[in-house]
Simulated scan of single mutants.
Amino acid sequence: MLSDTLIHMGFRPTRSDTSLFIRNTSTSTILLLIYVDDIIITSSSQAEMNSLILTLHTKFSLKDLDPLHHFLGIEVSHTSDGGLFLSQK
């Protein structure tokens, strides 16, 4: 089960949303959100995020859809400084 694997990898579900998992280390923070069969991952470290994706790919069948553009009716735009702008019509 994905949640068991994430917990074993040091993630913890948040109290406010059990589908949102967080892992804090001395060098980074990774947030992973699960919705049905979609996963959104973001991190303060690109290298640690890539490592997580590779690890998950060895355990589960994953399909990388590249940068996030839409999720649950929310439009996601990437800013020039590396941030995200969320909007909903």
Results as ranks from 00 to 15, higher is better:
23 R>Q: 10
50 N>C: 10
83 G>F: 02
68 L>R: 11
71 F>P: 01
67 P>V: 07
87 S>G: 05
7 I>M: 15
78 H>M: 08
37 D>W: 01
25 T>M: 03
63 K>I: 11
16 S>I: 14
38 D>G: 05
30 I>W: 01
18 T>C: 00
11 F>W: 05
77 S>C: 09
8 H>V: 00
58 T>Y: 08
45 S>L: 02
75 E>P: 01
89 K>M: 09
77 S>N: 10
58 T>S: 15
77 S>F: 12
48 E>L: 13
49 M>E: 07
63 K>G: 03
41 I>Y: 02
24 N>H: 08
77 S>Y: 10
75 E>C: 07
29 T>Y: 01
88 Q>L: 09
6 L>F: 14
67 P>G: 03
15 R>N: 11
52 L>A: 07
66 D>R: 13
38 D>N: 09
56 L>H: 00
64 D>P: 07
21 F>L: 06
9 M>V: 04
26 S>Y: 14
36 V>N: 06
54 L>I: 15
84 L>V: 02
10 G>T: 04
16 S>L: 12
39 I>C: 00
62 L>G: 06
18 T>R: 00
61 S>D: 07
5 T>R: 15
48 E>H: 08
37 D>L: 03
42 T>M: 03
57 H>M: 10
24 N>R: 12
19 S>R: 05
81 D>F: 14
39 I>M: 08
7 I>T: 14
75 E>R: 13
25 T>I: 04
42 T>A: 04
45 S>M: 04
17 D>M: 03
54 L>F: 13
86 L>E: 01
74 I>H: 05
76 V>K: 07
1 M>G: 10
13 P>A: 08
16 S>G: 07
51 S>I: 10
14 T>V: 11
34 I>Y: 14
68 L>A: 09
35 Y>G: 02
84 L>K: 05
19 S>E: 08
57 H>C: 11
85 F>M: 11
18 T>I: 12
26 S>C: 11
82 G>S: 05
51 S>L: 11
57 H>D: 10
21 F>H: 05
46 Q>D: 06
36 V>M: 09
35 Y>N: 01
30 I>E: 01
27 T>M: 08
62 L>T: 08
87 S>C: 10
11 F>M: 04
89 K>L: 09
13 P>H: 05
25 T>S: 09
82 G>Q: 02
40 I>H: 03
52 L>R: 03
10 G>H: 03
76 V>I: 11
12 R>L: 15
73 G>T: 00
58 T>L: 13
3 S>I: 15
12 R>G: 14
43 S>E: 00
27 T>G: 04
59 K>A: 03
59 K>C: 05
82 G>M: 07
18 T>L: 06
89 K>V: 01
27 T>V: 08
38 D>W: 05
2 L>R: 07
19 S>C: 04
